[in-house]
Write a protein that binds this DNA or RNA. Structure first.
Lengths: 202, 202
DNA sequence: CGAAACGTTGACCGTTTTCAATTACAGTGG
DNA sequence: CCACTGTAATTGAAAACGGTCAACGTTTCG
């Protein structure tokens, strides 16, 4: 998150372009020539990969301060769609400028590597969540990844219906599991937010 | 793969150490202080993350020419176990040397970013496979990711028993699904290899 | 030749998915 | 201010599917 700002600071002024998007508008489409890496200024951008059989997968939801399509720097085309989930503003970092900066300033390369490394960690974490087969455990894992504070809690900025596919479960199971977890005293739900109870050991 | 060599070439001679491993031997353990990034010279190294509940996830299987634990460069500890799946030789790239190289040579930063970027692509692909819930579809997706040629086929260099956890299924289900897929004419199996039939419309 | 793995298949169980139906809201227009 | 409508939140019941346990044939390799 912070490293995004850091990277931006290393680019010569004038290379950055800002782009405003309405909810539902696309930043780029799968297959488009990859011309830039992006940073979300505000709002949320959803990255969706379309599969051959017509189905799709949400690869990532980028929020304010986060970069997305970093891997585009070394790819010729985008491998997924980027669509604004809400009204959003994104900063465009043209590939050419980024590469130029990295070739002149070692710090830029380091900053970019840091960005990619955190993306790797992120993806690994998601992979772990997916590995859990029990719905309640999966939900707890997902919550733990995002909850902050004491008790660890999380503001839900969108309906569970929208979150469900991201966790890899149907919304019905989510609701059922949440009900059970709450009954068991492991979580507590307020309108629009949720908190983890029972300090998780480790 | 090639970028690994490229990176190695940028490190001053004498900073590299080679390490020989027997099958089953560990390169490092989850929680160990992260001191280096590695390149597989020969053999296979499996990266496994141990979960709190005692289960585990295969994060990656690194083969000859590939790097692993790249993200360790910015982390203080390893987040997973690295275990030789076969007898193997790995090259050790100490973090300090790598960082030093990246601070002096822009090309090193670029090379390292490239490495991380391909890891990101890799993880995303894996995540996609995991997001499919149907066992046969999951297997097909996994096959499509690695099959090459016409018809797309793949040499199996290890037993399905070893591959199964990487796909996130039990070997029983794998065999059952393979049998079904073959019966349906979507794949065909030879000893030690497998090919995809029915050109997938795209 | 014999012991380990590997490959294969059946039966059963537990859980999630699906399909369906109901309730709770929030926003809209009359 | 209140029906009206669409989405979100819930809950039930049956179906589908992968996991687990188990048994057995097969290949591999010391």
């Amino acid at each position: 998150m912070e490293s995004a700002r850091l990277l931006i600071g290393m680019l010569p002024a004038g290379t950055l372009r800002e782009r405003r998007l309405q909810a539902g508008e696309a930043v780029f489409h799968q297959g488009d020539r990859a011309g830039a890496v992006f940073v979300v200024e505000s709002g949320r951008v959803r990255l969706v990969r379309n599969l051959e059989d017509g189905s799709w997968v949400v690869l990532h939801v980028a929020r304010a301060g986060e970069t997305f399509a970093e891997a585009a720097l070394f790819a010729s085309r985008y491998h997924c769609d980027a669509v604004a989930e809400t009204a959003a503003v994104v900063m465009t970092l043209p590939k050419v400028d980024l590469l130029a900066a990295m070739e002149t300033r070692p710090q830029a390369g380091l900053a970019f590597s840091r960005l990619l490394a955190s993306r790797v960690l992120d993806l690994r974490a998601q992979l772990e969540v997916r590995k859990l087969k029990s719905a309640p455990e999966r939900i707890l894992a997902w919550l733990r990844l995002r909850a902050a504070g004491d008790p660890p809690s999380l503001r839900l900025d969108r309906p569970w219906t929208a979150i469900a596919p991201e966790i890899g479960l149907t919304h019905e199971v989510i609701y059922r599991s949440l009900a059970t977890l709450e009954r068991e005293g492991r979580i507590s739900r307020q309108r629009g937010s949720i908190s983890l109870l029972r300090r998780e050991t480790r």
